[in-house]
Design a protein around this nucleic acid. Structure first.
Lengths: 191, 191
DNA sequence: CAATATCATTGATGTAAGTCAATTAAGATA
DNA sequence: TATCTTAATTGACTTACATCAATGATATTG
């Protein structure tokens, strides 16, 4: 049994031992070292990933070649190209390790099997999605009502585990501002 | 049986007649006329709403008194203060009818009951949430990589049913720009 | 059908953040 | 530890969009 994910699951739902056993039976261990890719745009998305150890980023490359970080992930976060996984269409995202990482993966087919055999996992992912949806709503609101300084402080407060593990230019990218602008904002905050 | 919502449900899952009967049994009809509120910030959020007829907006009022439209809803959309409903905390949103509207409501307690009695509805809402989550991701990306003109065109293409039923200042607000700016952008598009 | 809000448009000006270019600081590698 | 690479900072300048103020166009209502 993979302790970290079991804990994450039981924090959200109350599965039977059999349910837990079932989920564990389909997990595969994956490792990526810093700078390597867990997923590349254009490829088939077979898995979603749970982070046991390490730090990763998911980003999108637009028509102009600019990257846009969608999500960071550290210990006990799920990461993947959610849309491509759900629709089983080619990946639009790159997922890259910012630190050496150790993950657990679950495949699309196995997940469908699990939903049918243990419907409690419908609830697990419904709850995760609900929380992710709410977090996203806040990100949209924040980008509309707040300036860069406020958004940066909010980011540091919300993701203290991430702030020190990720370069500033990645944080700037996530916030949708330039590294230059974030640098100036950080100077203002310090003084 | 309420035909529109039955159709919406069966577009996503395959419930038994009993499952459908159960869901229908907890629905309540609600009507609001244009300009009236379905929900106000600070109140207890008992329900989520399915739009049978009409058009509504959900918005947030920030510290500075500025409003931010989170969501529009027309026929066959769900609307509500999702976060407050899920956490059963006081509403942060206002939901106001842009047109006279006719809705179906489901209460928090009844929804929990339904989840337990007919787990297939866990799947229904998981699927809805997944789609909403993906749509939100696109909204975040769009606001980062595109200018006002591109975002406005994208909005019109994505929500043709909404574009003509909502005043321009509401669309501007949803896009996070001023009505003046949207007006100028629309002029550029026409010429 | 006036009278009166409400909404959309236009112009003039201000500002936060972007861009481009150079410099300094910090990490990585040999 | 010296070298090379990558990241962060700073300055000068540009730009998209906001703000403020006025006017023109639609609705709404007595």
């Amino acid at each position: 049994m993979h302790a970290p994910i079991v804990k994450h699951i039981t924090n959200h739902i109350s599965p039977s031992q059999d349910d837990l056993q079932l989920f564990n039976s389909v997990l595969t261990q994956v490792s990526v070292s810093k700078g390597q890719f867990l997923l590349k745009s254009g490829t088939h998305v077979k898995h979603q990933y749970f982070v046991v150890k390490g730090c990763l980023k998911a980003y999108y490359l637009d028509d102009k070649g600019n990257s846009h970080i969608i999500q960071f992930a550290v210990e006990n976060w799920w990461i993947g190209d959610f849309e491509a996984f759900f629709n089983q269409t080619p990946a639009k995202l790159y997922i890259e390790a910012i630190e050496d990482a150790h993950l657990l993966s679950v495949s699309y087919d196995n997940l469908q099997k699990i939903y049918d055999q243990a419907p409690i996992y419908e609830r697990y992912f419904r709850l995760l999605l609900t929380k992710a949806f709410i977090a996203q709503s806040k990100r949209i609101l924040s980008s509309q009502e707040k300036n860069t300084k406020e958004r940066y402080l909010e980011f540091c407060a919300s993701y203290p585990l991430i702030e020190d593990r990720v370069p500033n230019y990645d944080i700037a990218n996530y916030l949708g501002v330039t590294p230059e602008n974030l640098s100036r904002v950080r100077r203002l905050i310090k003084s």
